[in-house]
Design a protein around this nucleic acid. Sequence first.
DNA 1: CGAACAGTTGAGCGCGTTCAACCATCGTGG
DNA 2: CCACGATGGTTGAACGCGCTCAACTGTTCG
Lengths: 249, 249
Amino acid sequence: MIQENKTQGFANGVLTQSGLEHLLGIMAPQQKLGKDETVVIREIGPKIGRYAPRTVINAQGDQSDTTYVVNSGWGCTYLDLPDGSRQIADFQLKGDIIGLRADGVNWEESFHAISEMEVLELPTKGLNQVLSAAPNLAVRFLFALARNSAIRGEHLVNIGRRSAAVRLAHLLLELGTRLENAGLADPDGYDCPLTQHDLADALGLTAIHVNRMLRELRQSNLLSFRNGRVNFPNRKAAARFAHFEADYL
Amino acid sequence: MIQENKTQGFANGVLTQSGLEHLLGIMAPQQKLGKDETVVIREIGPKIGRYAPRTVINAQGDQSDTTYVVNSGWGCTYLDLPDGSRQIADFQLKGDIIGLRADGVNWEESFHAISEMEVLELPTKGLNQVLSAAPNLAVRFLFALARNSAIRGEHLVNIGRRSAAVRLAHLLLELGTRLENAGLADPDGYDCPLTQHDLADALGLTAIHVNRMLRELRQSNLLSFRNGRVNFPNRKAAARFAHFEADYL
DNA sequence: CGAACAGTTGAGCGCGTTCAACCATCGTGG
DNA sequence: CCACGATGGTTGAACGCGCTCAACTGTTCG
């Protein structure tokens, strides 16, 4: 039990009942768990995928018919541009869904494992049957998608209208809150596998400028990010500085 | 019939069967229309809302329990910032849904009518019942939300990684394609009720710079936007310039 | 040991901003 | 009927945030 919590994984790649229930709960905490949901999930033949850090799970333009639900680890979805740069749309943590879309619509983003990841893989084509059999599950997916849309809206505000330092602080606060909501961090900080380059690609900045802004934030005693660890020495001040309000998560 | 198509509205504020079917089709064109869908929509007591141009339909933070589906006109969802500026997350055209989310989650964006709008208003709390009665409809909502998420992803790329002129061209091409998909425009141009200020707020720019970039695009013969009309004298060149690919829509 | 990768710091440039005028159009009231 | 204020659009000048280019420092891994 303690071991399972520590790794946040399913035991030996087996889809345990408690693990699945826990995951669905985090996917959409507002929606109480229906008894049928786990049953129906199992009926559509889910697989458990494990991916090494820094591997591409699904590439831009792939004709994949898989919908993913993150169970452990950090991922990101991004778009590559012709000039070689990329833009990360959002980061995926436990309970986030990726790739759900209409049949025949190409998957125009890439999905990438940042740390080691364990994901639930569901064939998208079985979705229709799943929903008709378990309306609770349909609502759960809807809510998860709605939150995803809200997160992207907040990222748009961040990139479009905020200065580099505020942007950076906002993103690091968001990630901290999301980890907390998934039961994976406490308010004073968290382990973060992102590089400065990842942050830059998510924030529409260069890695060099991210580096400078991190120094500024550290020297202002608002937050620090060094050696894979984010710390909030004064989280209230950081939230005020970044205009961060967790309501959208 | 011709009159209805011209105004793209329901007759006299009445929810006609053909109008409703048409709207659901545009919401998620990939999904063929189930017989039960319109019936169930009617069961949850939909209203038809009409809004004058430049009015707020739903304000940031409102405890609204309404999900909207645009039937005619242009809207936008945006977030206001403490410094008085705002960021438009996306524009809503016919078939787009707004406000779908979990119970108890605040609506953290504002929804604004840009032109005169006609919207279908559905009580969000009835959603659960709707989905259990009509799984086809649930899938339709899922697909509409997934497309919305994809559009926001593309907007993130736009704002995060492209120059002002490319950004602007990309957005105007996207809006043109979306209007075409809804049967409201042809490839050479469309009527556009947006101000340069609206465009600026969507693109993370100032209205002044939008003005300059529009002049540049016009002088390059890529596209023009004057007096409420967008024209594409050379759409292929414009699409190449903007790296616009319509796959995500 | 050396290659590859992530992080760090400095100097100078340029895109998009701010500030400031000014014009055109339109609805409104004296 | 024109005066007017409000709104949207247009243009110029100068500033500054974040970029580019460049160099250098760890650290990890073959």
